[in-house]
Design a protein around this nucleic acid. Sequence first.
DNA 1: CTTGAACCTCTACCTGCTGCAGGTCCTATC
DNA 2: GATAGGACCTGCAGCAGGTAGAGGTTCAAG
Lengths: 142, 142
Amino acid sequence: MHTIGTLSARTGTKVQTIRYYEQIGLMREPGRSSGGQRRYHEADLDRLAFIRHSRQLGFPLDAIRELLDLSDSPSRPCAEADAIARRQLRQVELRLARLQVLRKELKRMVADCDGDSVAECRVLEVLRDHSECLTEHEEIGG
Amino acid sequence: MHTIGTLSARTGTKVQTIRYYEQIGLMREPGRSSGGQRRYHEADLDRLAFIRHSRQLGFPLDAIRELLDLSDSPSRPCAEADAIARRQLRQVELRLARLQVLRKELKRMVADCDGDSVAECRVLEVLRDHSECLTEHEEIGG
DNA sequence: CTTGAACCTCTACCTGCTGCAGGTCCTATC
DNA sequence: GATAGGACCTGCAGCAGGTAGAGGTTCAAG
C-alpha cells in the first residue's frame, strides 16, 4: 500500500496532479485509510507511470484514456494503439515543421537587427509588417 | 473609422478575441458610436496586426505587451526588443529539440509494432516501461 | 502525548482564447 | 417611416492540463 506522496515521488508527478487525474477519471478511485487518506496498490503506480510516460511523449489525455482502455483488454488487436501512436507522431511532425519555419524567421529577424534605436529596429519592423517575412506562418496555438 | 468586424476581417482575428485583447489591456479602449459600438482608428488596426503577427511567431502575450511598449517609445535603444526576440528564438529552439527527441521515440515505437494483439503491442509496452526508451524526455507542456 | 510533515477538500487561477445566451444597434430596402 | 436581419453589445462558462493556496485533519516518529 502506497500513499499519494509515494506515488508522487516515484513518478515525478505532483500530488495535486494525481488527484486531478482521479477527478477526471484517468486514475481509479483508490481505497482509503480509516482516516480518509488515499491508499494505492502497485497497479495504480504502474498506471500512473504509464500516464506520465505518455504525457512525456506528448499524448493528450484523451488519447491516454484510450490507450489505457486498450491496455486493459489484452486480447484485442493492437491496431488501435498503433493508430493513436501514429496520429501522435503526425502531430509532432506538424509542430516540428511549423516551429522550423518560425525559427528561420526569428533568426533572420535578430540577425538583421544592429542594436540601434527602436525607431529603426528590424525586430519591430518585421513584426509590424508581415510582408517582410519570407514564409507564411499561420502558427498560433501550435 | 472601422467597426470591430472590419478589424476582424482585415487581420483574421475573431471579434471576441479583439474584445479579449481590450479586456487584458493589449488593445486600447476605442471610442464608441452613439449607440455604444466600438469605433477604431487606423492606428488600432496597425496595433492589432502587430499583435497578431507576433502571436503567429509564437510570442506570448506578455512579450507582445513589452514589444508594444517599446514600439511606442521610438527613441529608446532597441536592445530590449532584440532581447525579447532572442528569448523567443531560444524558446522555439528548445521546443524543436524536444520535439525531435519525441519524434524519434514515436517513430521507433510504431515501427516496432507488428499489429498483433494488444498483449504484445510494442506501443503499449514502451509506454508502460520508460526504460525501453533510447533517450530521456522530460517534455510535458512543451 | 506531542509535534509537524503529509494528507484532506474546495476553490480559484494560469494561457489564450472560443462560444453561447439574450438583448440592442445599424442600415438597406420598401 | 417601418421593418428585417446582420452586426454588434455584455456577461458568463468552458477548453487543456494542470498549479497554488486556504483552512483543516491524520499519521507516525520520538
